[in-house]
Design a protein around this nucleic acid. Structure first.
Length: 485
DNA sequence: AATAGGTTTCG
DNA sequence: GAAACCTAT
């Protein structure tokens, strides 16, 4: 009789409820990871993200090995094969219980349901734990018993829950007495990593694995969290935690993040320390918010807008403008700097995700799904719920009312959040010689940046056009009888 | 989690 | 004349 931990996007040994439960069952413990390149293709997982996952798995295999837990990497091209692959494995290894961390997007839910249905007749229960989030997706309901669809009231409830019941961290896993360490065979992983064939200049920017993630969290909490509120919106500063990658692959747990943030919040020693921690906790709450949106509105997984009437918006399908956006040559410095950061590092500062998404969906008026998909293909932290939520927020098709708020001026954003142009100059060499504030509007000094493109669209009248297009969409929706449904 | 355009206030 | 303030969308 053996207990099995099925690893997915929870690639850690510390702070891991499923692993803790498996060890607590007093049976021998094994672990598996289903390697699914076909599923990665379907979900458009970025090569750099695949690399991060594989490299983190390599470390996890060694960590688990020291605890006497063998980690097996099982080939399983797509989710469709998961039930058969796991059933065969469980049969061969006398598995009696299966433990995992729950995932909430539709394909993952269906996979897990199919696995549970296949294993139950074999006498194996699949037991899920909700520690990929702080508050489980169906736990919080409004007064009307419906899921929260506006962030602010959600955040208030989330805070109350946190105060009443702070997340608990399971004890560090220990090697059971009498169990010998095992050696992890990383050959399959290393072969996959070689297939990706990514340049060292790219992978060298990132440190995979649980140890690096823990260290990064600790350093952020010690050095930057107190100033997070002040610094987080300036892409030229190291103001953010950079933990999105670790959180999305589970090399760090949100519970650990919240525990550290609450400690800083309570200490509140440094001036502003409290505000910094509170603001960062909000970002963790956003993460939970979009996960509970995804879990409660599963049609989002099929490309549907959250607000049905916005499904009738007539987006542009201009491939050339889209390509200019992807490659960072729109002629708007901060947008281009943002896209070049994404393309060259696999990551983009959160402020810039809003700026570039807003530019694609509102200024170019191109379908937000094109942008959502491009981000997934590039991002090392590509997380379906957060990415979809962010894109729909920018495109005004998503949660939170007041869409007329939602047109950024790429010039204003640039002036506010990269005032002296440091970040732009780092990312866009063609603009390096533009002095001072001129950098925000290079078309006014074309001779100083001869290699930089002219703006691909004018900013004039954007708001009126967007408002008109959304009004037209609502009319179509209402006259199609959508209002009554 | 915003902008534009106006008015008032300040040095 | 710049900065702060107000307001409609």
């Amino acid at each position: 009789m053996t207990a099995l931990v099925w690893y997915r996007n929870d690639l850690r040994a510390q702070d891991h409820q499923a692993l803790s439960a498996a060890l607590g069952s007093k049976q021998p413990v094994r672990a598996v990871y289903l390697l699914s390149p076909g599923q990665w293709d379907r979900h458009q997982v970025a090569p750099i993200r695949r690399w991060y996952v594989l490299a983190s798995l390599h470390e996890l295999g060694e960590t688990l090995g020291k605890l006497g837990i063998p980690l097996d990497i099982l080939p399983c091209d797509t989710f469709d094969e998961a039930p058969a692959v796991l059933a065969a494995y469980c049969r061969d290894r006398q598995i009696r219980a299966l433990f995992c961390t729950r995932e909430y997007p539709l394909n993952e839910l269906r996979r897990d349901r199919a696995v549970a249905d296949t294993l139950r007749p074999l006498g194996i229960e699949l037991q899920g734990f909700d520690d990929a989030v702080i508050i489980p997706p169906r736990a919080l309901k409004t007064g009307q018993g419906t899921p929260y669809t506006v962030f602010t009231p959600y955040r208030r409830r989330w805070d109350e829950c946190l105060a009443e019941a702070p997340p608990s961290l399971p004890p560090a896993p220990k090697k059971p007495a009498g169990v010998a360490p095992v050696t992890f065979d990383a050959r399959a992983l290393d072969a996959q990593i070689r297939l990706l064939d990514l340049p060292d200049t790219l992978t060298g920017l990132w440190q995979p694995g649980e140890k690096a993630a823990q260290k990064q969290l600790q350093q952020f909490a010690d050095d930057r969290l107190a100033d997070y509120r002040r610094d987080r919106d300036f892409p030229a500063l190291p103001g953010t935690s950079l933990l999105s990658t670790a959180l999305s692959a589970g090399t760090v747990s949100p519970a650990r993040c919240v525990t550290l943030a609450r400690a800083v919040q309570r200490a509140g020693s440094k001036a502003g320390g409290k505000e910094g921690a509170t603001t960062w906790l909000s970002e963790i709450a956003w993460r939970d918010f979009y996960r509970q949106i995804m879990a409660n509105f599963p049609h989002l997984a099929w490309g549907a807008p959250f607000r049905p009437e916005t499904g009738y918006v007539q987006w542009s399908r201009d491939e050339q403008l889209f390509q200019a956006w992807c490659e960072g040559r729109t002629g708007y410095p901060l947008v281009d700097a943002a896209m070049r950061q994404l393309n060259s590092t696999g990551w983009m500062h959160n402020r810039l995700r809003m700026v570039s998404a807003m530019f694609l969906s509102k200024n170019l008026f191109i379908d937000w799904r094109w942008g959502e998909s491009y981000f997934m293909q590039q991002l090392i932290d590509g997380d379906f719920a957060a990415n979809n939520g962010g894109w729909q927020w920018s495109a005004s098709t998503g949660t939170d009312a007041a869409p007329y708020f939602r047109v950024f001026s790429p010039i204003r954003q640039s002036e506010r959040f990269d005032p002296d142009g440091t970040f732009i100059r780092q990312q866009v060499p063609a603009l390096r010689d533009l002095p001072g504030k001129q950098i925000h509007q290079p078309w006014k000094a074309p001779l100083l940046a001869p290699d930089y493109p002219a703006p691909v669209v004018s900013l004039e009248g954007v708001r009126d056009r967007v408002t008109a297009a959304f009004k037209a969409a609502k009319n179509i929706h209402d006259s199609a009888g959508g209002a009554s449904r």
